[in-house]
C-alpha cells in the first residue's frame, strides 16, 4: 500500500458515498446513468470473486464487500425505489456494444486462460469504459448537477491516482501489470474532457453546461 493507492481508494469510496447521498437526500436519481451503474455492479461482481479464493488483507476484503454491496444498492435505488425519477429517455447508450467486445477481448488478451482470471480481466476492461453511458447521457442532456460533477470527479480521480500508484510500484517493487495499466490509462483519458470542464467551471462555482 502506498499513498497514491490509499488516496485513490478513498476517492473511489467518496464517489460512491456521494452518489448514494445525492440519491437519498434528493429522493431522486435524475441525471445518473443507470446503465453505467449496472456496468459498475458487473465490474465489481466479476472482479471480486477472489473474495472466496484468496485472502489479501482485512482492508482489501472489507473494501471489496463494500464496493459490491453499494453498487448493488445503487442499482436497486435507481431501478426500484427511485425508478420514477430515472431519466431513461436520455440513458440510451447501447451497452451491448461495450460488454460484447470487452468480453471477447478478455478471452483473447489475459494473463492466464482460467475462469477467474478471464473474469478479472473482463472487469478491468469493462471498468475502463463503464462510464461511457454516463458521459453520453450528459452530452445528450447538455448539463450535470454540481453534486453529479463532484461524483464524477472523485470517480475519475481514483484511476488517475492508481496510475501514479503503478509508477510507484514499478520503481519500488518491480511490480508491473500491463493489462491494469493500459486499461487504467484508457479509463483516465476518457475523463479528461470532463476534468477540464470540472476545473474550469465547477471549481469556479458554475454548473456544467455543454453547448447544444
Amino acid at each position: 500500500m502506498n499513498i497514491f493507492r490509499l488516496i485513490g481508494d478513498m476517492s473511489h469510496l467518496l464517489a460512491i458515498i456521494l452518489l448514494l447521498l445525492k440519491m437519498w437526500k434528493t429522493r431522486s436519481c435524475a441525471g445518473i446513468s443507470g446503465k453505467s451503474q449496472i456496468l459498475f455492479a458487473l465490474v465489481f461482481a466479476s472482479r471480486y470473486l477472489d473474495l472466496f479464493t484468496s485472502f489479501v488483507s482485512v482492508y482489501n476484503s472489507v473494501m471489496k464487500i463494500f464496493f459490491i454491496s453499494t453498487s448493488l444498492l445503487t442499482v436497486y435505488l435507481m431501478y426500484f425505489k427511485f425508478r420514477a425519477t430515472y431519466d431513461s429517455n436520455h440513458d440510451t447508450f447501447r451497452v451491448e456494444f461495450l460488454v460484447i467486445p470487452v468480453g471477447g477481448l478478455a478471452f483473447l488478451v489475459n494473463h492466464e486462460f482460467s475462469p477467474l482470471e478471464i473474469l478479472w480481466t473482463f472487469s478491468i476492461y469493462l471498468e475502463s469504459v463503464a462510464i461511457l453511458p454516463q458521459l453520453f447521457m450528459m452530452s445528450k442532456t447538455g448539463e450535470a448537477e454540481t453534486i453529479t460533477s463532484h461524483y464524477l470527479f472523485a470517480l475519475g480521480s481514483y484511476r488517475a491516482l492508481y496510475i501514479l500508484n503503478w509508477v510507484y510500484r514499478y520503481y519500488f517493487e518491480g511490480f508491473f501489470d500491463l493489462i491494469a495499466v493500459v486499461a487504467g490509462c484508457v479509463q483516465t483519458i476518457l475523463y479528461c474532457d470532463f476534468f477540464y470542464l470540472y476545473i474550469t467551471k465547477v471549481l469556479k462555482g458554475k454548473r456544467i453546461t455543454l453547448p447544444a
Partner: peptide
C-alpha cells in the same frame, strides 16, 4: 504473484 493480475489492488 508472478504474471497474474494485480489481485492485491481494488
Amino acid at each position: 504473484k508472478g504474471a497474474k493480475g494485480a489481485k492485491d489492488e481494488l
